[in-house]
Design a protein around this nucleic acid. Sequence first.
DNA 1: GCCCTAAGTTACATGAATGTACCTTCTTGC
DNA 2: GCAAGAAGGTACATTCATGTAACTTAGGGC
Lengths: 109, 109
Amino acid sequence: MRKDYSHPIEVTMDVVCGKWKGVILCHLQQSEVLRFGEIKKLLPNVSQKTLTLQLRELEADGLIDRRVYPEVPPKVEYSLTDYGRELEATLNLMSDWGKSHVEKVELNS
Amino acid sequence: MRKDYSHPIEVTMDVVCGKWKGVILCHLQQSEVLRFGEIKKLLPNVSQKTLTLQLRELEADGLIDRRVYPEVPPKVEYSLTDYGRELEATLNLMSDWGKSHVEKVELNS
DNA sequence: GCCCTAAGTTACATGAATGTACCTTCTTGC
DNA sequence: GCAAGAAGGTACATTCATGTAACTTAGGGC
């Protein structure tokens, strides 16, 4: 953990609020297992370095599992841990709210 | 709205992921109405400028209401909009997860 | 007349987060 | 023996979010 939190929600936000973390988690929810390259294709605008970093942080926080196959070329698979799956309901609510927010904003324009 | 989103969860994260926004929303959930100074006391480490900015952004996104009383010295009250209240369940889940994450991390140390 | 008050604003500085470009690895297919 | 492939690492640059410090406003209490 990183610092002093005055409210438990800050913990969750710290863990989830990277620029790409939410989307990564959502995709892992749907697909169970994804390789690095597959995730990269799903997020066309993320850079290699940043994607690696976001995945490492999610791993360090215990949300995802990283399985390396000692092959060449390399093969690395990512999946949600049980612990990460405990965020499923939250992530789904956030997606739903986001969808309705988009619709709301489009109505007013 | 700010940019192209590839997934609806990005919208919610954009709206909620300021450094102080989650906590502000949680406090407004509990207290109904808070003055600027009260919020500031609840977040002892936020700077004046940043707090103002976060509140303005939440207002612009329709989550909170800002009521100015034309008095001197000024009086400004903030409260959740109905729309902001639709995030209640999400915020509560996030708080719960955060609490259990803290407990989990403390066990391993 | 002067200071205090609450909720700002402004100009400037800093740091963290993210991006770009290029290097590495070893094996298989040609 | 050369290139391609997947998943990185590294050095450096840039951008974005926050922070600091000082100024503003106008009425009430002294």
